[in-house]
Amino acid sequence: MSDRLKISRRAFAGGAVVLGLGSSFARAQGFAGLGKQADGFATVVPGKAFSFPADLGPHPDYRIEWWYVTANLTDSTGAAYGAQWTLFREASRPGPQQQEWANQQIWMGHAAVTRADLHRFSETFARGGVGQAGVEAKPFQAWIDSWEMRGLDAMNDMTIAPLELSASGADFSYALRLDADHPLALQGEAGYSRKSERGQASYYFSQPFFKVTGHITIDDKPAEVTGQAWMDREWSSQPLAADQTGWDWLSLHLASGEKLMLFRLRQTDGNDYASGNWIRSDGGSEPVPPAEIRMTPMALTEIGARKLPTAWRIEIAARGFAIETIALNARSWMGTSFPYWEGPISFTGSHSGVGYLEMTGY
């Protein structure tokens, strides 16, 4: 598949061509029409008992899911980098899984690297059933074409570590090793992540404690890098409500060793839905009540005809948390089939650290 066959974790688009989702509103909601009815697909309900390694693998009865890694890295000179690796799966229709070319699964991969002075990305697609892309739970492996995330021989199912991660585009590549000594963190309410007050939800867990070593090559110039990474696993059949137009999502590595995930789903009536989880340094995850979250855009970046809030003030008063974010590269635009913004950030204020910001639907 072409590196430039121009689609987002959460804004996953390849199947839109297959499904005919051509309207601007469908494009705002992303791949598979995330706010459309999902009759015939499995539903997300509270109280799921997660099982590992099984839940590292695919869930084809649900319409959409992703395996998503973002990394905040530095080289030996202290220069900052970001790296993104994403594999999406979407079912074009419900029902028993068909074999070979009749299989209804569509796979899409995104990879990107970011520095202060550049942002490079690549995209690739595959059809299910023919071995070109897929995920296996044990031994863990996720792949599309030559891009791969795989567990090493000593991989622990409860930490998803150690892993090797690799991808390449026309003008970049990376090969990274991810290690972790903390268990997976369940997002939302014990892994049940609400997206609205009307029943939309996903199953969602993360590994936010990865330590990274490896190298990134840009324009044939390699750099050894180290840093932190965050992996998200999420699946659903209808994760958005029909009147939600996109989201602003952050994953934050606090200098204290704590982690924070926050998102805001924008609604047409202005009553945006917020959610988050505070992850303690020991790995325990606590939901942040939506009413406590304030996400305020502070600066806009114009990219083409779009104006995007690439700097934010984030406040959780009950925790004494008040920070302002700055993008490593405010032009971290993913010009993929359904375009979105995604890139590394840093933050200062009551707490300091680094993280990632993703914005869709602008």
Rank of each mutant, 00 (worst) to 15 (best):
G134N: 13
W341N: 01
A32I: 03
L87E: 09
T310D: 09
F25R: 14
A167I: 08
S76T: 15
G22H: 11
I216D: 03
V113W: 08
M261G: 12
D157L: 09
V288Y: 07
D55I: 01
Q29S: 04
A28V: 08
F31H: 12
A71F: 11
L34R: 14
A330T: 12
V45N: 02
I316R: 01
P58E: 06
M359N: 07
A201I: 05
G199R: 10
P297E: 00
P60D: 02
F50M: 10
P287V: 06
D39I: 11
V44M: 05
W247E: 01
S196K: 05
A38Q: 03
E100W: 14
V212F: 08
F172L: 12
I106F: 07
R27V: 13
G284P: 08
T213I: 09
I326Q: 12
R313C: 10
A79N: 15
G276A: 04
R115C: 15
N277V: 15
D220K: 08
K221L: 13
A242G: 06
P239Q: 00
E324F: 07
Y204L: 07
A91V: 01
V45W: 02
L118T: 13
T301K: 13
T70Y: 11
I326R: 14
P53H: 08
Q207N: 03
Q228P: 01
F338E: 09
A318G: 03
I106S: 08
A180Y: 05
R194S: 06
V17F: 00
E65Y: 11
Y362E: 10
S146R: 15
E292Q: 02
P46H: 03
P162V: 04
L252H: 05
S275C: 02
A80W: 10
T217R: 00
T124D: 13
N72K: 12
K36S: 10
W67G: 10
F50H: 10
A311E: 13
G283L: 14
S275T: 01
G109P: 07
V44Y: 03
G15L: 14
R306A: 12
I303Q: 07
Q238E: 04
T70P: 08
P46V: 04
N72Y: 11
Q200I: 02
Y81R: 13
A330P: 15
A322Q: 15
T86V: 14
G57I: 02
F12K: 14
A190I: 04
R198A: 13
G57W: 01
P94A: 05
D243A: 05
S24W: 12
G109R: 07
L328K: 07
L178F: 06
E197P: 01
L252V: 05
T268N: 09
H110M: 15
T325M: 10
